[in-house]
Design a protein around this nucleic acid. Sequence first.
DNA 1: GTGTAAATGAGAAAAGTTTTCATTTATATT
DNA 2: AATATAAATGAAAACTTTTCTCATTTACAC
Lengths: 138, 138
Amino acid sequence: MESQDLRKVGLKVTLPRLKVLEILETSDQRHMSAEDVYKALLEMEEEIGLATVYRVLTQFEGAGLVSRLSIDGGHAVFELEDGTHHDHLLCVRCNGIEEFVDEVIEQRQRAIAKQKGFEMTEHSLYIYGICRKCQESQ
Amino acid sequence: MESQDLRKVGLKVTLPRLKVLEILETSDQRHMSAEDVYKALLEMEEEIGLATVYRVLTQFEGAGLVSRLSIDGGHAVFELEDGTHHDHLLCVRCNGIEEFVDEVIEQRQRAIAKQKGFEMTEHSLYIYGICRKCQESQ
DNA sequence: GTGTAAATGAGAAAAGTTTTCATTTATATT
DNA sequence: AATATAAATGAAAACTTTTCTCATTTACAC
């Protein structure tokens, strides 16, 4: 019932929005750039412009349907929002992304913000490295 | 004795390099974008091209004289390297940057990388929020 | 002083993303 | 079901940040 999801967050039900949502839900990559989504759309014969993909993803972000990761000064990748806060491990070799949750880190961050007098709005934590698979295959 | 600093890291002593170093050392902002440095140079009547500023900052980074922070998918800022590893708090209102060190977080990150089989190369942690000053003046 | 490799400046190019504006579409209203 | 209208879309241009190209200049070893 994807149409309902869109209406629920106050977005008109349009083909581009339905198709972008479909890609995000059915792709085997959990993390996709706008370009990735655009190419996946082309593969399913949906001629949706890249600008529209960006617009839709940005709206989805605003609506809380997806979250945006800003990777290392470069491009952004998007993931379907699943309600859990988590941080990311990025493989610098294969660009794979893994997720993790660590309550100790979460709590330390809140403590640091408080100690510095910051009203924390969000945080971003990326651990860069070489994933197990890439270490083995080399 | 800045010329020595440059020779020590194998960089020829040139006016642009000396001046960029001078800006970084004397500016009241510890964190500066390439654009900031470029403008500061113009203010001191040094007509050094922006491309050169980028090149010099990148070389300084390679030489370990400065480190580069990649802020939130956008532009990079540079800070003089002081030998201490630290992470950053960013004020979303005034764009101010504060630094902090937390051994617990450092250690947890290493543990997570290990647990996930990652060979960690680096990490980036930013806490976003509203700094004390901005909370008060509003 | 001179030669040579390295550095610089200016502008073009690149990458990722957003904006513009004319056209099309979804949906609230008749 | 037809229509009005506000919103969404496509295509191209614009924008932002950074890097590259290449002709000219400079640092420094000899």
